[in-house]
Design a protein around this nucleic acid. Structure first.
Length: 231
DNA sequence: CCCTGATTCGC
DNA sequence: GCGAATCAGG
């Protein structure tokens, strides 16, 4: 994969919106987290609270450890004295949680004289599967619909809550689909994977069948996706 | 262990 | 320019 203009735009947008490099990486696909970070820096995007940056580098204090095997006789550089004054607390960008389905206040809608909704700084619309709906450039926030007369808890959470959505998938999350894509409660298994496989142990058993000799009567084939679709 | 971003440096 | 390897903090 190469960095096309479009992909660069997507990178910029997501980076500025506060998505982590990992999220950006598998959102874009075909690139690693490192690639995203590297590109972001090359683009001049920077800042964002880094766990390993509370200290400034005056000159070249911290020895970055030689990439090549140390040439034997090597004196461990003494750790530079930490500066007395610590930087101000790193402040997380005040953006809404990127992927999490909005958690509705349980009894929020009860109050009839509820105060007006606090204006959200940014609006991220979420599709049926839980994915972020965002255009390539993504600079423009989606036009918010006309304000409802009465506030109602966000819909998706009830069905989708605690379900593993597309955005929850990682290298070690079972990706076995549950239900059918497009349906409101479509999600993924979400179990810990069988190491080295994209599925958990149980679903590996479904996904990988032993190769039987030719002509052998095949056992009832477990169908993926929860069986044939009935309409 | 998992995660995060930063940095280096061979390609 | 790219990104794997590595570092370092949470």
């Amino acid at each position: 994969m190469s960095w096309t203009d479009e992909r660069i735009d997507q990178l910029k947008g997501m980076w500025e919106r506060g998505l982590t490099a990992s999220q950006i990486a598998d959102e874009l696909g075909g690139v690693s987290r490192n690639a995203v970070i590297g590109k972001a820096h090359r683009l001049g995007l920077q800042s964002r609270p880094s766990p390993v940056k509370a200290n400034e580098t005056p000159k070249k204090a911290t020895a970055p450890a030689p990439r090549k095997p140390a040439p034997a006789a090597d004196v461990e550089a003494p750790r530079a004295a930490a500066p007395a004054v610590s930087a101000p607390a790193p402040v997380r960008a005040p953006v809404a949680a990127p992927a999490a389905p909005a958690a509705p206040a349980p009894a929020a809608a009860a109050a009839t004289d509820a105060p007006p909704p606090p204006p959200q700084p940014r609006i991220i619309s979420v599709g049926p599967g839980g994915f972020l709906r965002q255009g390539p450039g993504d600079q423009q926030a989606p036009i918010p619909p006309a304000p409802p007369r009465r506030l109602v808890p966000a819909k998706p959470s009830a069905e989708i809550a605690d379900k593993t959505t597309l955005l929850d998938l990682t290298e070690r999350i079972c990706k076995w689909p549950m239900g059918h894509p497009g349906e409101p409660d479509f999600h993924f298994c979400g179990e810990q994977v069988n190491p080295g496989f994209p599925y958990c142990v149980e679903h590996c058993g479904r996904a990988y069948q032993a190769q039987l000799p030719r002509g052998t009567r095949r056992p009832p084939p477990p169908l993926p996706f929860g069986g044939p679709r009935v309409r």
